[in-house]
Design a protein around this nucleic acid. Structure first.
Lengths: 339, 339
DNA sequence: TTGTAGGCGTTATCAA
DNA sequence: TTGATAACGCCTACAA
């Protein structure tokens, strides 16, 4: 790769403003420590030259970057977009820049991305969920990297943690479903390996069934990737089995939307022939017909709170606390009585 | 912000492996220039220490970062996600890291983000669309920053450019609409200031009407922000006017989906009472009922081609070429005959 | 209030 | 094939 054509440096500015580099540096970092007239002169030159501080030099010298990194499973999906947007806005208010990377739900790639972001100088990280190889946690620990885990709250976690309890959430929506008299339950879940959100939701379903005395024999599961098509295919699979389930619970709204779309194509009436539920409450949930009964996740609050916690940690604030947020079930039209 | 606890450095590795820092460096950058036994020893220590190269030091010394930046209008929206994902994948295959920032459709913020990414050491940039203040182009020019403009192709552009011609696309779908006998046309567009995609699409509509001899008096326009609710509200606005339009063209699928959703709520039948069209062909387009007639944009191809072009430019390849991609109209159910 | 100078981690040139 | 060593741009004691 070519060298970047040389950019103006602190030196250049200093020379033209006839001051030392130290003074120019101070104009940026401790402006009140330089007298106004000098500062004005310097800033004018800065403007004229279009000078931008060289980030590499800065981190090298000061050992901090005012940058944090976030590694999310995927950007090609609305699930994380809203939360990350809020995360970023909160950081920006505190003059911290966000670097985003995506892992494609692959723990090995997540590890690489973590290393890469740290190399880039990230002061701290946002990670999605708890499930990752020990190797990754070892690295984080050894390098003493400040990080916050979000999108799943676990009381017993060793990490700083902002989010909702996916297991409780799974139970909660299952209980709602059971109120409608459903007995034969099918679940379309995302792959649960290294995806603790999916796993916990599923275990929540089991918890609820158990405490209502419903046998696991009434639970059928398909695990697949998160896409409209996967949801649709899994739906069709379930509906060609005998006996059919009375409700199909989906691991997220994308899967649920795929399921309902296929239902419409097959001439199956939701919720009269079968009920469908989602998880996340993204835009899609209100667009699909019938509208989706789903779990409302406080995306923006989660992003904002994660940012605040991470900033507190980075600023060395004492007694930083993990934070559990609550979800709500939102009843729309896709869940009805069991037949 | 706290200092990051000290990470192992090249020095540490060198000391433990009993070689010079130069050799360790070579192990990473020109591995074939160091004999295998030494290399193995070094890499072992690297592994043991969990050493990660310090990015700041590296950029400082080598004046390149193997990083490129992309500034997109928003991440909270599926429009750009797929293209950016493809862009990133292609970069990753070439060991280049992507930094993403979002501008919120604000040219001033875009300018800041550009400076910020350059400060971070980005070797090149991906920018969406052509419309931005001269100030921004001046900066790009003066600093000789390699960049590619995407999401809109303009033949007369001075920038390297990958995308489709939004104006032609606007004409194309309008012509399709005119074939269905529509005469009273309403457009819900995104704000066109500093959004050349929106502006060009709109001008394309005008072009097509003109060359079919339809007066501009038959064109009504509402410009608004890109959200489901804005689309819905604008739809309702149009449908309470007299006479009603026979077709409502939307600047993207989000607006169109909002429009159809509101139509359903108001008991207005699409396409019997009014036709609706979208733009982009994202997932939403096939989920909403009736399915959306829209402009299919080659998101992934655009992302991939942009990445290739940018990499070529960065590698100093000669005769790099801008690239025009084609769109297609996809006819689904939301467009019908004028009544 | 300002300047001097050393050092941050890495690469690259030149010798050995 | 390896090692010394001088940059790279910036920050920050310390001195003036």
């Amino acid at each position: 790769m070519n060298k970047r054509s040389s950019a103006p440096t602190l030196q250049d500015v200093a020379r033209m403003a006839k001051v030392s580099t130290a003074t120019v540096s101070r104009c940026f970092n401790t402006p009140d420590k330089v007298i106004e007239t000098t500062r004005d002169r310097v800033l004018e030159i800065v403007e004229e030259l279009g000078y931008t501080p060289h980030f590499g030099g800065r981190t090298l010298a000061s050992n901090r970057s005012n940058t944090v990194g976030a590694i999310i499973p995927t950007i090609d999906n609305a699930i994380f977009a809203r939360g990350i947007q809020a995360f970023q806005e909160t950081l920006a208010q505190n003059n911290v820049t966000l670097l985003i990377a995506s892992s494609g739900y692959d723990p090995e790639r997540e590890f690489q991305q973590i290393r890469s972001l740290i190399s880039q100088g990230a002061d701290g990280l946002l990670l999605i969920g708890h499930a990752r190889p020990i190797k990754t946690y070892d690295f984080l620990q050894r390098r003493q990297i400040p990080y916050v885990v979000t999108w799943n709250y676990r009381e017993d976690s060793n990490s700083f943690n902002v989010g909702f309890d996916n297991r409780k959430a799974g139970s909660k929506i299952t209980n709602e479903i059971l109120k409608f008299g459903h007995k034969r339950i099918a679940v379309i879940t995302g792959h649960t390996e290294f995806n603790d959100r999916a796993l916990d939701r599923l275990n929540g379903v089991r918890d609820a069934m158990k405490s209502s005395g419903i046998s696991e024999l009434n639970l059928a599961i398909i695990s697949t990737t998160y896409s409209l098509k996967s949801g649709a295919d899994a739906f069709e699979d379930f509906m060609t089995r005998k006996p059919r389930p009375t409700v199909i619970m989906c691991g997220n709204d994308v899967l649920a939307t795929g399921a309902i779309t296929r239902a419409n194509e097959m001439g199956i009436k939701v919720p009269y022939d079968v009920s469908v539920t989602g998880f996340d409450d993204i835009d899609l949930a209100e667009v699909v017909q019938p509208k989706l009964t789903t779990v409302h996740v406080p995306h923006r609050r989660m992003g904002k709170s994660s940012a605040k916690l991470l900033l507190d940690i980075l600023n060395g604030k004492q007694d930083c606390q993990s934070l559990e947020l609550e979800i709500e079930i939102v009843l729309r039209q896709s869940l009805g009585n069991a037949f």
